[in-house]
Design a protein around this nucleic acid. Structure first.
Lengths: 333, 333
DNA sequence: CTGAAAGCGCTTACAG
DNA sequence: CTGAAAGCGCTTACAG
């Protein structure tokens, strides 16, 4: 593996000049630059990121912290953010925490990220005040997707409004007994709580009570949604419609209804949030959120903060859209 | 941010001793080690990865190169590999190439990875001989998932056998006119070709011809599968069963059949490969492949190669399993 | 426009 | 068991 010294010798210049030429800095004659570029290409020279980082104090890497990557929402955001960051010359260090509290602590405390990244992208987690302080102390700009934190850049949907939109759709269709399938670990992720708030608020706005027995926990998985729906539909007085806080849970709910011999939407309506890539396939009515855009925006914000220094970090709310498909209709009778 | 020097001063030892104590190396007295550990904790010291890499020649990072992360198969493998690698103290650098040939070239040429990672994990790509040579020249061990390459560690399923298993299931049910929905860019990814080979081979073993008009391109997406199925089912003499080389395409095919007014499986059977997380939900018959295990195995192989030096790199084939669900049955009549 | 040199923060023989 | 010192390969003022 060739080093900058090899290139310098081959080009007949100093290593300082090689560095400047390769970085496109001014104060290098065009002739010299060409000679250096040719020598570097010839030697297949690639600068050592470690050495460059040590000398410059920049790592040219962004850390991405998420609970999962193998879920539609996170995978889509990671993919779009990665593309944007790589284009800007940044590497993406992935920390997929799972549900492990210990790993979560390591990530947020900075043990994992300090001195390793120039900035951090947090996905789908709702950090505590302590965690915010710790991550902020890592040094670089932080952007969060799916929540907002003072001092950090953020991209999110209005979860409460999205939930209200979904419930309103059901109300407009004539439903009055509407079940809710939410997440479980409200402490860990941001949006479940907000979506539940929206559910209750929209019911209240329609003069309907929020009945505890109509709220179930789905854990944001297909099988969790299935189980939750099964319980709700087995109630003595079952709901005529189900609002699931994510499409994956909504899909599980549709399945549960059908396995219980109920037709969707004739016997029970189901609506989700997301517009998961499989939602159209399943003809699922949902409130769509733009995931690719959120990933790109978050990446963009970090890049801007990295170059533009001290300008205020934006907090963006992206719009959602009701997608009426085949799993919702008016209740019978 | 504290450096090793701060810790050394606080503990009253040299930086060499700090380094040894923190790494758990021998030849440090227990008392000294405790003192160093305490000082490091007190100062919230985290070693600079750049400095450590530059001095040691190791990056403690593994590069993961994949065409996508936002597809079930890749996301699942990245997630499980990341967990294993992080546990071993390695960072995961993600390179999600997309379909961009330019980025692919950069990744395989080593421009992206050289001097940056200790090993590489390649997912779902079928590198050319040239690419293999270039990536091998990066230096560290390489493991590939979904294909096998001489000189690299590998984990994969037997794609041809999996395809034959799927087709055999359809033959056993009595189908004789079986359509195939495969990928598109056979040059880029490994398995499409093998799965097509298996399809043809199993037909041949049953004394049936491989009819070109029964083979369609689905591009490994739901919508691609939908389109391909639509074409096949619109044939003057349509197939009574469809074998899709992935579950996502199979799901698209099921949808296409239903939208054409055909019942699945009464009018047309559909089988896929994968056992996608949504397959059970859709009651899709498929040939299951273990994704989590493949990710873990691949990570394990790299870790072993990294520590155990020059032992031969394993090439493992993991088993697949036919999952008979509700989208396949005997043809009518 | 170019070079000599300091310095980034570690690891690792080498001495003792 | 511990320390002094070289060296990893860059970047970046500082001179000229």
């Amino acid at each position: 593996m060739s080093t900058i010294k090899d290139v310098a010798e081959a080009a007949g210049v100093s290593i300082a000049t090689v560095s400047r030429a390769l970085h496109g800095l001014p104060r290098v004659s065009e002739a010299t630059r060409q000679r250096v570029l040719a020598a570097a290409a010839e030697l297949r020279y690639v600068a050592s990121p470690s050495a460059a980082s040590l000398a410059s104090g920049q790592t040219n890497a962004i850390g991405v912290v998420a609970p999962f990557v193998n879920r539609w929402y996170f995978a889509a955001i990671v993919h779009s953010a990665e593309e944007r960051l790589r284009k800007a010359g940044y590497d993406l260090l992935l920390y997929s925490l799972g549900t492990d509290t210990h790993e979560r602590r390591r990530a947020f405390s900075g043990t994992l990220l300090r001195k390793r990244v120039d900035g951090v992208l947090v996905l789908g987690l709702h950090p505590t005040a302590e965690e915010v302080a710790a991550l902020s102390a890592v040094g670089g700009p932080v952007a969060i997707v799916g929540a907002d934190v003072p001092g950090w850049a953020s991209v999110r949907i209005d979860d409460e409004a999205a939930a209200r939109c979904a419930v309103r759709h059901l109300l407009d269709l004539g439903h009055r007994r509407i079940g809710f399938i939410g997440g479980a670990d409200e402490l860990h992720t941001a949006m479940p709580a907000d979506r539940r708030v929206g559910y209750r608020a929209e019911l209240a706005a329609a003069g309907l009570p929020a009945l505890p027995e109509l709220e179930a926990v789905g854990g944001f998985t297909v099988s969790g949604g299935h189980l939750a729906a099964k319980r709700l539909l087995g109630l003595p007085e079952p709901p005529t419609a189900l609002f699931a806080a994510s499409d994956e849970m909504a899909m599980g709910a549709v399945q549960a209804a059908r396995r219980s011999g109920l037709r969707v939407p004739e016997d029970v309506s189901v609506i989700g949030i997301d517009d998961h890539e499989m939602a159209e396939l399943m003809d699922l009515t949902t409130v769509a959120q733009p995931v690719v855009a959120q990933g790109e925006l978050a990446a963009e914000m970090i890049l801007t903060a990295l170059t533009d220094g001290e300008q205020p970090l934006p907090a963006i709310t992206v719009p959602t859209e009701l997608m009426v498909r085949g799993t919702t209709s008016s209740p019978r009778g």
